[in-house]
């Protein structure tokens, strides 16, 4: 049985109740805890021993129901899956806040309806072609290799940690967020679904390409779903299916071509590839500002030293299989 000394840990917990008319504040609670105690256990001890009015969502306490996502020392985490010891060692206290990007209802409880709405918006159920019904009375046949493409996707417990951590969600409320896009991936690659192309087409404008590729969703995911990698997969599939039709995808393809050509970016060419000649006009003020600070952008770009090696990397990647082998 893992034992160990008890630590005296101060918790600063965000408190806000719209019913009592007070402003948000932090309440300090101090507990004696073993280092491997989950943060959720600590919060439940606060509820049962110190202050029962603390509001939070929780149910399974084993990281499978997705109820207890919150900010632990500013990071989106599941309270049940975060041990107090390492948090205390790193920060000297444990600060608990409600998740970001969603309005607070009370204390640590947020209104998740924006998150659920994005999930509903990707049409999260199989879309079938009436001309090709499921096999009568028996399961669809699917090889282990086919299943391998998406059998990890049900790991997602819809806790909302990724949505809370995502800066694109904060900047652009129209962005579906990592969870919805990872869920979309699940339906796009499902061999039973007949609307994959349509799904890719519909998600592109304003959806897919707003992702900043910061990978905060992946680092905050408590179940290793890796939403940013699924978003990358969707981008690749979208380009493969339709070519570079969106501003975002044109930028990505232009970027790749620039590097392939000379090993570095040719900004004026990249802007032309992304926005087209007409679109470039809108970028003139930005271009002039850049010119003032960095006059060398007018010079014709030359290939970098070792460009042949860059070429070789591209060739290897072209030869490699989809899985990168």
């Amino acid at each position: 049985m893992p034992t160990g000394e008890l630590l005296t840990i101060p918790f600063d917990v965000y408190r806000y109740d719209p019913a009592d008319g007070s402003t948000p504040r932090y309440a300090r609670y101090t507990l004696e805890l073993a280092p491997h105690t989950p943060v959720l256990t600590a919060l439940l001890r606060i509820r049962s021993e110190i202050d029962p009015s603390l509001a939070l969502r929780y149910s399974c306490r084993s990281a499978i129901c997705g109820s207890c996502a919150m900010l632990v020392n500013s990071k989106s985490r599941l309270a049940c899956q975060t041990q107090v010891g390492p948090e205390f060692a790193e920060h000297g206290r444990i600060v608990i806040d409600p998740m970001s990007n969603q309005p607070v209802i009370r204390d640590l409880v947020v209104d998740q309806s924006p998150f659920w709405k994005e999930y509903e918006r990707i049409v999260p159920h199989l879309i079938l072609d009436p001309m090709h019904p499921m096999p009568e009375g028996r399961p669809t046949s699917m090889s282990p290799a086919q299943v391998a493409r998406f059998e990890e996707t049900p790991r997602c417990i819809a806790c909302g940690s990724c949505y809370s951590a995502c800066p694109a969600v904060a900047a652009d409320p129209a962005f579906p967020g990592p969870m919805a896009l990872a869920k979309l991936y699940r339906f796009v690659v499902d061999p039973r679904d007949t609307a994959s192309q349509d799904r890719l087409m519909r998600i592109q404008p304003g959806g897919l390409w707003t992702c900043l590729r910061c990978h905060l969703c992946t680092s905050s995911c408590p179940k290793d779903v890796r939403p940013s990698e699924r978003i990358r997969d969707l981008k690749e599939m979208a380009i493969a299916a339709q070519g570079a039709t969106e501003r975002g995808s044109r930028h990505a393809v232009g970027f790749k071509d620039n590097i392939a050509e000379r090993g570095l970016l040719n900004e004026s060419k990249l802007v032309r590839q992304t926005d087209g000649i007409v679109g470039m006009i809108g970028q003139i003020p930005q271009g002039l500002r850049m010119l003032r600070r960095k006059p060398e952008i007018l010079r014709a770009p030359h290939a970098i030293e070792g460009q042949d090696e860059v070429q070789r990397i591209y060739e290897l990647l072209e030869d490699a299989g989809e899985d990168g082998t």
Partner: peptide, 20 residues
């Protein structure tokens, strides 16, 4: 019957080599 129904609803079951 119930298991097949759930498969048709979209459940991602683990598979044997023969696809069953």
């Amino acid at each position: 019957k119930i298991v097949v129904e759930m498969e048709h609803f979209g459940t991602i079951f683990s598979r044997a080599e023969d696809g069953s």
